[in-house]
């Protein structure tokens, strides 16, 4: 599974592609199944033409964790959440089930050590 992400030009906000528009929450991101590679790449191709809206759109790999999808790489999880040293900054400040799931997500991209290091003050 993949999702399409970028940073918004005007403010740098992390955004995700969802059915023809950019959304701020990973929870609302459109998920592209591996079989739908052509659709994912078409969306990426289109996004690259939106040069006045976003900067450097790219596809990210997702991994299934506790029944939900999360970005595979730790870097992308941090983009979808916010910095781990300020748990109330960035998207994570909203809280909610999907944010929680992202914070607890496990899979290829993380060791147990990392879980310990995520702080909640």
């Amino acid at each position: 599974m993949r999702a399409l992400t970028a940073n918004r030009l005007s403010d740098g906000e992390v955004v995700f592609w969802s059915q023809g528009r950019w959304v701020e929450r990973f929870a609302e991101a459109q998920l592209f199944a591996d079989e739908a590679a052509a659709a994912a790449e078409a969306a990426e191709g289109h996004a690259k033409t939106e040069t006045k809206v976003v900067v450097e759109p790219y596809l990210i790999d997702l991994v299934e964790s506790e029944g939900l999808w999360a970005p595979l790489s730790y870097r992308e999880r941090i983009r979808a959440l916010g910095p781990t040293n300020h748990p109330f900054h960035g998207k994570q400040s909203e809280g909610g089930a999907v944010i929680e799931a992202l914070q607890h997500a496990s899979g290829a991209a993380r060791s147990k050590g990392r879980v310990d290091l995520i702080r909640r003050k």
Binding site: N7, L9, G12, E13, V14, T51, K52, I78, G82
Partner: peptide, 26 residues
Amino acid sequence: LAGELTEDQFKPLRLMNGLYLQLHAY
């Protein structure tokens, strides 16, 4: 913002003014 400069052209200009695009924002 008006699209007269591409990101490739703009990036070195913003960098010369200390402005980076990082993970969450500029």
